[in-house]
């Protein structure tokens, strides 16, 4: 059997007495889109942060294309091809939007991929164009709205040409119209191809999201977390019909 793209094995992390992620194992294939859902505080963001190396796990291993990720630094993991976006967006507020993306374009991974460019601005502009905020490229990032900040996060992530993209609530705080646009660009990104001077093979994705309706249309498979443990795993249809998942989200019925 071919090696999976990402293999997470018995990953655990606790903050004091709270087990945020408890013995979670799953695997992902190439180009797969995985939805990660669960009630608030289920450990979804913590799981993403463990994969990207922002947090160090207490136990367990994360293998990406056969390489162990636990113990590597964040930038090292990004340069291997795992990019992430932040749930609470973290732009460089006092810098122009294009400079935000240029930082990603200056990473070793990005500078050896895609078309060679003399001016890194061009590449950053293509990433912004893909995300749909190229018309504001010269504004300071502090002027952006919630939705545009989410787009900026996506632009920064795809500028490193990831093979695995971790999206933390890409639709969080977006209006319905913005949500549709974001879903469209995620689908387009997954198809891959050329975005100006950027090339993309179409990354595999893990998407953490609460707006299940939108999420179901994008993902191939869903993982449900509850209290840090793996509650269910399967196709979207299987998961939404699982009584345990409904119970975790809505509570037990009265009678």
């Amino acid at each position: 059997m071919a090696e999976p793209l990402l293999q997470v094995e018995s990953l655990s992390k606790s903050f004091g007495g709270l087990k945020a992620v408890d013995d979670v194992s799953f695997r992902m294939e190439q180009k797969e889109v995985l939805g990660l859902i669960g009630p608030n505080g289920a450990g979804k963001t913590t799981l993403l942060r463990l994969i990207t190396g922002i947090l160090k796990p207490d136990r367990g291993s994360v293998r990406f294309k056969g390489k162990e990720l636990v113990g590597r630094s964040i930038w090292n993991i990004v340069n291997l091809g795992v990019a992430c976006t932040f749930q609470n967006m973290r732009p460089f507020r006092r810098m122009p939007i294009i400079a935000n993306v240029m930082v990603s374009c200056l990473s070793p991974r990005s500078s050896t991929r895609g078309e060679w460019v003399k001016k890194i601005e061009n590449k950053a502009m293509d990433a912004l164009e893909f995300a749909g905020i190229s018309d504001m490229a010269l504004e300071k990032a502090s002027v952006l709205s919630q939705g545009d900040l989410k787009r900026l996060e996506v632009a920064r992530a795809i500028a490193t040409d990831p093979e695995l993209l971790l999206l933390d609530e890409p639709f969080g705080g977006l209006s319905p119209a913005e949500t549709d646009l974001m879903a469209k660009s995620i689908r387009r990104l997954h198809k891959g191809g050329r975005f100006g001077r950027l090339h993309s093979e179409g990354p595999a994705m893990i998407i953490v999201e609460h707006k299940l309706h939108q999420l179901m249309k994008i993902v191939d498979r869903i993982i449900v977390l509850n209290f840090g443990t793996l509650l269910d795993e399967g196709t979207p249809e299987e998961v939404v019909n699982n009584p345990r998942v409904i119970e975790a989200y809505l509570g037990k019925g009265g009678d």
Binding site: T52, I54, S73, I74, W75, V78, N79, A83, C84, F86, R90, P91, F92, R93, R94, M95, A99, N100, M102, V103, S104, L106, S107, P108, R109, S110, R156, A159, T160
Partner: peptide, 20 residues
Amino acid sequence: IIFHAIREDELAVKASGINT
């Protein structure tokens, strides 16, 4: 640009793949 970005948010620079 990277110096500037480190002043703004170091974690985000790391997450952009830069060895801070």
